[in-house]
């Protein structure tokens, strides 16, 4: 589903990714772990198409298509979803209004009939309940004044509504207490499906206690330096990145 080959990318002109290879198949959940500054967020932004991140070499194929040739919204409409590490506050834009706009944009793209207000209400009520999101949050402006946990649950709700084919979760576990972590983890597990792939980007192993990945990759200085099964995450937990001979480049 996702094939990344020899990816080199710069952020604001600075090289961050230096020959990254990654293959993710449908039905798989991959964890990408790495110390601060290893390029985890850059990888997620390059996949989503954020401005300011330039690919200088290499390729990303998504379902056989050249992902890098697609606009941000084309990627989203084709089923790529990024759960943000720092969801953006949009003052004055009601959460429910925005969700309906996004869901209907996707339905229209797929040639399906757009939901009317009642149909959408039913859909969102069902998805909300699973994530423990109350109705009050829906009436507030998008992410404005949300706590860290609320923002992350809100990202999970969007993922559930948009039902992506490829989901990239950028440090969705950061800043969560254990209860919120469990909610987020069950949100992710509930989305596991044979036709869907997920890439869980994380610094810590603790989310992986609840979401058991099919594969774990260690990112360092913009390259995948180790790959393995879920036991690699446990090894990292025991020995730390330093135990693998990896330093946080932010700390270096």
């Amino acid at each position: 589903m996702l094939t990344i080959e020899n990816l080199h990318a710069t952020a604001d002109g600075k090289p961050i990714l230096n020959g990254l290879d990654l293959q993710v198949n449908a039905g798989e959940v991959h964890a990408v772990m790495g110390p601060n500054g290893s390029g985890k967020s850059t990888l997620s932004y390059v996949i989503a198409g954020r401005e300011g991140y330039e690919v200088t070499q290499g390729s990303i194929a998504y379902q056989g298509q050249d992902l890098l040739a697609m606009s941000v919204e084309e990627r989203a409409l084709s089923g790529v979803f990024l759960a943000f590490q720092y969801p953006v506050e949009i003052p004055g834009v009601g959460s429910a209004t925005f969700f309906k706009t996004a869901v209907n944009a996707a339905r229209k793209h797929r040639g399906e009939k757009e939901y009317d207000a009642m149909e959408f209400l039913k859909l969102i009520r069902e998805k909300r309940a699973a994530l423990g999101i109350d109705d009050g949050m829906m009436r507030r402006a998008l992410n404005v004044g949300f706590s860290g946990g609320e923002k992350k649950r809100n990202e999970m709700l969007q993922m559930a509504l948009l039902e992506p084919t490829l989901a990239i979760l950028d440090e969705t576990d950061s800043g969560l207490d254990i209860d919120a972590l469990k909610v987020v983890a069950s949100g992710i597990n509930g989305m596991r499906a044979p036709e869907r792939a997920m890439v869980v980007i994380t610094h810590y192993q603790r989310l992986l206690d609840h979401v058991v990945p099919d594969k774990v990759h260690v990112l360092s200085s913009g390259r995948i330096v180790r790959s393995g099964g879920s036991e690699l995450a446990l090894e990292l937990e025991r020995s730390g990145y330093a135990g693998l001979g990896l330093e946080s480049s932010a700390a270096a």
């Binding site: 989503a48 606009s71 990024l82 706009t101």
Partner: peptide, 30 residues
């Protein structure tokens, strides 16, 4: 309009025009 806000909305499948319209409407709607 903030690039972060536009990117966030576009990453959910909204085209640039729709994203900008939502941001402006929200800005005035407050």
């Amino acid at each position: 309009p903030e690039a972060d806000q536009l990117f966030y909305l576009r990453s959910r499948g909204l085209d640039h025009r729709t994203a900008l319209a939502l941001i402006v409407e929200g800005f005035m709607g407050e």
